[in-house]
Amino acid sequence: MARHECGFEAPIHCKKCGRPLDSNERTGLFCPHCGRRVSILCPGCGRLW
């Protein structure tokens, strides 16, 4: 489960390989398997993840 800084948690999966994404404050959302970086808006607060 990826967790945003506002506290919102969601199971987000990579579109490229289908594995769960990890969340890091410095890098944002990324896939630890294929290395893809993802930019989405948080449904909880509307800011960039």
Score class of each variant (00 low, 15 high):
13 H>L: 12
14 C>K: 02
41 L>A: 12
6 C>W: 05
7 G>Q: 00
36 R>G: 12
46 G>S: 10
23 S>I: 06
12 I>Y: 04
18 G>D: 00
24 N>G: 10
22 D>T: 10
7 G>E: 01
21 L>E: 08
32 P>E: 01
18 G>W: 05
13 H>P: 00
25 E>Q: 15
49 W>M: 08
14 C>N: 04
16 K>Y: 08
38 V>G: 03
20 P>E: 04
22 D>L: 14
49 W>N: 05
34 C>V: 08
8 F>D: 09
28 G>F: 02
31 C>D: 07
43 P>V: 09
24 N>L: 02
7 G>L: 01
42 C>P: 02
3 R>T: 13
25 E>K: 15
31 C>L: 04
2 A>H: 01
30 F>T: 07
36 R>N: 15
41 L>R: 14
43 P>E: 09
10 A>F: 05
21 L>Y: 11
45 C>F: 07
2 A>S: 11
21 L>C: 06
27 T>L: 14
2 A>V: 11
1 M>E: 07
33 H>P: 00
31 C>G: 07
21 L>G: 08
11 P>I: 01
8 F>Y: 15
43 P>C: 05
47 R>C: 08
3 R>N: 06
39 S>L: 15
7 G>W: 00
33 H>Q: 14
20 P>L: 09
49 W>A: 01
30 F>G: 13
19 R>Y: 08
30 F>L: 10
4 H>R: 00
49 W>C: 00
2 A>P: 03
25 E>R: 15
11 P>T: 07
33 H>R: 10
35 G>E: 11
38 V>T: 13
2 A>E: 04
12 I>P: 02
48 L>M: 13
4 H>D: 12
39 S>T: 13
26 R>C: 09
22 D>P: 05
43 P>H: 08
29 L>A: 09
29 L>M: 01
26 R>T: 15
1 M>H: 11
9 E>G: 09
1 M>L: 09
30 F>H: 11
30 F>W: 09
44 G>D: 02
33 H>Y: 12
30 F>Q: 06
25 E>P: 07
33 H>W: 09
27 T>N: 13
11 P>E: 13
41 L>G: 14
44 G>Y: 04
22 D>N: 13
49 W>S: 01
1 M>S: 14
46 G>T: 05
49 W>H: 07
44 G>M: 01
1 M>Y: 10
2 A>R: 07
47 R>K: 12
31 C>F: 06
34 C>Q: 08
27 T>I: 11
35 G>V: 08
46 G>H: 06
27 T>M: 12
19 R>I: 05
46 G>K: 07
31 C>V: 06
5 E>Y: 10
47 R>F: 08
47 R>S: 12
12 I>E: 01
19 R>E: 15
40 I>F: 03
35 G>N: 12
36 R>K: 14
47 R>E: 10
12 I>K: 06
15 K>Y: 02
49 W>Q: 03
19 R>T: 10
15 K>A: 11
17 C>G: 06
5 E>G: 10
20 P>A: 07
16 K>V: 09
34 C>N: 13
16 K>W: 02
10 A>K: 15
10 A>M: 10
11 P>G: 05
12 I>Q: 04
21 L>Q: 08
31 C>Y: 08
25 E>W: 14
6 C>G: 05
19 R>V: 11
13 H>G: 08
4 H>F: 11
36 R>D: 15
42 C>S: 02
32 P>V: 00
39 S>N: 11
28 G>M: 00
15 K>L: 06
25 E>M: 14
17 C>M: 09
13 H>I: 03
26 R>V: 12
42 C>D: 02
